[in-house]
Design a protein around this nucleic acid. Structure first.
Lengths: 232, 232, 232, 232
DNA sequence: AATGAATGAGCCTTCATTCAT
DNA sequence: GATGAATGAAGGCTCATTCAT
């Protein structure tokens, strides 16, 4: 019989408030007081329920990562036996939808990007293993698109080119985008998906072409000579 | 030999120490004490020479930005009348060399990325105007590569695709790269330059092809139909 | 018996200590450390309970002003329908008793006088409204004593003459009266009351006499009855 | 041969700046930097020329007190053999003119009043001896007005009544008079002089009347009975 | 004689954490 | 289980004073 208090409920309220405050202010900028004020709980509740600010931070990451993977599966819902370019599109769309989420999950990216740019050290392991899972899928798709001759180096380079665009496309995910690189937002997700897929498939195809001509005698690092547009 | 009592010398020492500490710890994480300990000056020296922590931060940005622009000009040394693809390569190389710098200037990116992810507000104006200059150059090159039919939207999408790769290629510039997305480092700069240029020129050419076929009746958002590999 | 953990108690202890320290050292001279040492609480307690030094200062003023008005009502206990000279005596006695208080309330005057001589700006509004209340009462009594012909200017001049004496009579309220103008102290309160009332009633009567002769043709700025230079 | 520096000149500039800053900000509120900025000298000059902030403060007092006594003699220019009421008027006018001065000397009162209300201890001796001189003159006049029967107590009471008015008449001497008690300013000096003299001569006369009737049987502390206006 | 540079002590404030209830 | 109160450590900043020139 619960008359006044409910441990899980309080825990949950703190977690939800922590997403917002950590997302907006970062780990250092967030204070117990602000989180607890937002959660309508006592300031001591964080240490009571989580033991420390660090532990709450780690719990917040898990809380968000779990939801993210459930809500936006990494394959974008495309079956494994679909053609590679369709799987690529599904993957790109999934990554962009994750960034486009305007709810609680939007804080996931803010926290992740901050950790990448300004690591606290607290989430090092969690983020590393989370990324591993994501990258494995993407690389398998790219490997297929590059063909059997692609070494790991080429896969990694193309993966970088693809993932970079998905990470940066919508810029830093805050409303007040003072340093916004581009003005794309959640409404442009489909447009961005198409662009990135088109751009990247062409890029990958070019790399593949070079890879395959390489073995037939053409040098790999073909220098720029004249306007490539003329070549086509 | 002056040991003490040399304003410019002390100022310089503080600036250099500030690069390191702001770069490693961020604005909030940096303390007067740590900066001054590293600079071998008194803790009050920051406020004496710069007036406040904020002013020191702004001075540090200027100090780094000035050096950066001098050392790695945005065009990579390629003259304005060179072909667009060569200018693109120069631009990409310049951006990658900036990130590859392992000296004092490496802190420039750390500070900039942190400001983008976790703005203090102190550098808002400085960073915005700095970025404006950089983007203007890149967009002019892309505009030329996309041809006269490219609207601003297309230019911006391709700019995003290109710049994203340059930003992310070498990952966050810390020695201990726990979150490193890719293992490329400063020794791979030329390799990365070639990859990004090849990949992106192909991507841009593809976007241009679609742009130009659009006017001849083909729909813009041409969906993926069949394996693009078949097309070649 | 509560030794710690009693918010009201701690708050009260801080307030009482603040009266003493602000009273003795002034706003700038008072430090958190000294106040908290006197109150036997932690240095951070001021900001915990009051938010800032300024807020504590304002709270201290309210704390003292409230007690003062309760303990020494401005009319000195004389009913409103008493003759004007009796009301004047009550008013004068009240003002002198306020200054004669040797307890916590003695700090009220120290703080007020300091604010007048060296305003912090923090109490501007509070002191202004507090004085307004006090002056309104005194002026109504003086207005009646001066008669219907007295303009505001005359009322104000006489108010000044009366209040000045009440303010200065006992000198600045410190134990170590290095700058004491007169040696009167709290034991002389009744003696001072009688003197000030006698002196001032005569002064007011003289002003009234001149006021009323003025309307009968005599010029306003009537010099000293018979030019004193001539008289002697 | 003085080429660049002139010890006396620098000293003088500091003194003049110190008057202003000590006058406006008080001892604690004044900083070396502000004073020296106003004097257009180096920050170290205060300690160089005066040894310490305290010594400068004392020197500032002497600098102002000397000028004050020269410019506004305590007797107001009235000869010693003039009638007592005329000497009183001269004394009152002198005191009011001192407060009405709008130049450098206006800081004299600010410093003096602050010392009285909020003593630093630095000027204790200087102020005490300065006041002694002033009071001696005033008391001799009052003694004569009160007649031979006046004891020291009566003289002191009347002196208090008179001096209080002169001290307070123009309120605290700052432009921004947030706590202004009365709105009189330097233009009202003559008007105030007349009022204070009229008011006080009547008050003194009343005290003298009571003094003299006291010896003829009437009790000293004649209580208030009925409206004193009727009595006249 | 004079000064720009430098310093150390001290202040107000913040905040994660602990404590008694 | 939960909380309001309390705390100590640390940070940014001010400023009178000292130092080397």
């Amino acid at each position: 019989m619960r008359i006044r208090k409910d441990g899980e409920n309080t825990r949950q309220k703190i977690l939800q408030a922590a997403c917002v405050v950590f997302g907006e202010k970062g780990y250092r900028g967030a204070t117990h007081e602000e989180i607890c004020r937002l959660a309508h709980v006592n300031t001591a509740a964080i240490n009571y329920h989580f033991g420390s600010k660090e532990a709450l931070y780690a719990a917040t990451w898990d809380y968000l990562a779990t939801q993210m993977d459930e809500l936006y599966p990494i394959d974008g819902g495309v079956p494994l036996n679909a053609p590679a370019d369709v799987r690529l599109e599904g993957n790109v769309r999934s990554l962009l939808l994750r960034k486009a989420d305007r709810g609680e999950l939007s804080n996931f990216h803010r926290i992740r990007m901050r950790e990448i740019m300004n690591p606290t050290g607290i989430l090092d392991h969690a983020i590393a293993s989370w990324m591993q899972k994501m990258r494995t899928y993407t690389r398998s798709v790219i490997q297929e698109l590059l063909g059997p001759k692609a070494t790991n180096e080429y896969v990694e380079l193309c993966e970088m080119s693809l993932i970079s665009q998905c990470f940066m496309a919508q810029g830093p995910p805050w409303k007040k985008r003072k340093h916004a690189l581009w003005k794309f937002d959640e409404k442009d997700t489909e447009r961005l998906t198409q662009h990135i897929v088109q751009f990247s498939l062409a890029g990958i195809a070019e790399i593949r072409r070079r890879l395959e001509s390489e073995t037939t005698g053409t040098r790999l690092q073909e220098p720029l000579t004249g306007d490539p547009h003329d070549a086509h």
